[in-house]
Amino acid sequence: MEEISRKVRQLHFVSRKLVDTIFAGNYHSVFKGPGLEFDEVREYSPGDDTRFIDWNVTSRMGSPYTKTFREEREVVLQVLVDTSSSLFYSSGQINKRDLAGHIFAIIALAAVANNDKVGSLLFSDRVEEQIQPRKGRKHVLKQITQILAVKEGRKGSNLALACKTASQTMKRRGICLILSDFRAAGYKTELTMLARKHDVIAIRLTDPLDRELPASGLVQLEDPESGQSLKFMGNRKTRQQYSEYWEHERYLWHKTCQSAGVDVLEISTEDDPAVKLLHFFERRKKKS
């Protein structure tokens, strides 16, 4: 527990700096609100759009009054975090779960800096925890703690169920972020449904080991989720089969997201998530 809170503080410290300097603004411009909301009625001044003249008030006061609007800004950010055992692996310095925590921290803090509500949904083969969207930095820190406190041992990634639950709980249009390794199948329908209502971004957590195995002799690995073992010779033929398999899986993921209208981003455990996210935001700004 001690270690987790230390980690949270560290993550908070690093991310806050990033958010304050770069991400808050970027976040604001990339994730616009769903529409305009009525603000006040003031006297018409020349140049105002005549469409917005409030005729009721005008007739009562005798001079033209117009309605003013402001952008609706209270956006809800819902983050779906995969907490299955398959995330507890990487060949690098940090594992995928830590990477997920890191990304969550950056985006959630940026959201909070823009006065948005942040909620999260932790899932494995079922929905493990659901935290209602609320404003405030403290609320975000609580969620980071929750993500980092997840112990290895949860089996399965029921992404379909997570998407369905998110669709049901998010009443208003919001932003939905999925942090997962997408080692799941059969989530296409639910993802499409979710993307129809919300702005969905799929962030795929990857690792160099997802692409390539090191050359070796006979090795026995154990899949932490299914408990099945994978016994293989690390020779050229086997390694090629392995690479081809995961390359194909990646292609399928891309296609699924594309057809569902989901924006995609891949972040590897080797990468600096801040850099990757920044690139992503800039790309999205240009698009919109």
């Binding site: 692996y89 026995q220 899949d223």
Partner: peptide, 8 residues
């Protein structure tokens, strides 16, 4: 064996 995710 060594626990490494090796499947979907």
């Amino acid at each position: 064996g060594l626990r490494i995710s090796a499947g979907i």
